[in-house]
């Protein structure tokens, strides 16, 4: 069971948390909605929630609830630039099918 961050993602997350001034890490979750059934959620974490699993990657603590982890195991969080757009991208090996609009996925 592991979730990792790319170098670029880790440095950006650290920068964002510093700029925000508070927060203990990053929370990743999977929500059940969207066209293909599942969608990612990416939030700052202000404190750990009991039952959460945490992973350390390149100086960033990542919190994931156990249910989401089954869909996220092995994911690498990357930070990429696409044209004018910058943002985080989930490289999730569990994904079997994505929706056409690119907001949700299926495992």
């Amino acid at each position: 069971m592991t979730i990792t961050l790319s170098d670029s993602a880790a440095s950006h997350v650290r920068k964002f948390i510093d700029r925000r001034g508070k927060g203990v890490g990053l929370r990743l979750a999977v929500k059940t909605s969207g066209c293909s059934g599942l969608a990612y959620a990416l939030e700052f974490a202000d404190d750990a929630i009991p039952d959460d699993l945490s992973f350390e990657s390149k100086g960033v603590t990542v919190f994931v609830d156990p249910k989401s982890l089954t869909f996220l195991d092995g994911t690498e969080l990357d930070f990429v630039r696409e044209g004018l757009n910058e943002g985080f991208k989930f490289n999730n090996p569990n994904v079997k099918d994505k929706c056409g609009c690119g907001e949700s996925f299926k495992v």
């Binding site: 990053l26 939030e43 991208k89 994505k98 907001e103 949700s104």
Partner: peptide, 19 residues
Amino acid sequence: MALLQIAEPGFAAAPHQHR
């Protein structure tokens, strides 16, 4: 996949509903 931004706790945007 669309690129994501980090949201404040509890404010992660819900994806659009597919009808």
